[in-house]
């Protein structure tokens, strides 16, 4: 019914009806001063790493080694390691040491600046490194190369940090292998 009524008006009349019939934002503004409270939620957190990743980080921090784990049922090798196989839901208990080399599967170069969340000052490259000896990839920075020269399929190796504290930057970044 509404559509039929409106179709009887020409387009300009229709707009005019709306303008006259509906209170405009400017009408409200004369009556109400909008109040806006500034807010910020500041809640401290800690994050438990868990047994599987604690072992992985421990090997990385203490030995400077990169490990993965293998599903005893389907043989899939996971890095970062998994507690449960995604396919089989079996406990993934077999640990294998990786050589630390891999292939850039995909990447991006970051140019915009967001200092509160970025690991370093742009421009920088990061990508997914398909690790040799594993079936999955690791997300990390790609450095020691002009970011614009990073390519898919490029061979890279992990650079282990001299000072390690048990986090992902114990691997400093990946760099090209000649």
């Amino acid at each position: 019914m509404i559509r039929k009524c409106l179709s009887n008006l020409n387009a300009y009349e229709h707009l005019d009806v709306l303008r006259k019939g509906v209170r405009q934002l400017s009408d409200w503004k004369e009556e109400v001063e909008e109040v806006v409270f500034p807010g910020k939620i500041c809640v401290p957190y800690t994050w438990t790493v868990g047994s599987t990743l604690s072992k992985w980080y421990g090997l990385l921090r203490d030995e400077g080694q990169i490990w993965a784990n293998r599903c005893p049922s389907c043989g899939k090798v996971y890095i970062p390691p998994k507690a449960k196989c995604l396919e089989c839901y079996k406990d993934v208990n077999d640990w294998v040491r990786l050589p630390g080399t891999g292939t850039v599967e995909t990447f991006t170069v970051v140019y915009y600046e967001e200092p509160s969340i970025q690991p370093k000052k742009p421009p920088f490259a990061y990508g997914i490194i398909k690790m040799d000896g594993a079936d999955t990839g690791l997300v990390h920075l790609i450095d020691e190369i002009d970011p614009e020269k990073v390519k898919v399929g490029m061979r890279v190796e992990a650079v282990i940090n001299e000072e390690r504290s048990g986090n992902i930057f114990d691997i400093k970044y990946f760099r090209p292998v000649n």
Partner: peptide
């Protein structure tokens, strides 16, 4: 404090 288990691992324990 279940420091031995992440949230995901707690879930895995219950689901298993």
């Amino acid at each position: 404090h279940r420091l031995d288990a992440s949230g995901m691992e707690l879930i895995a324990e219950a689901v298993t």
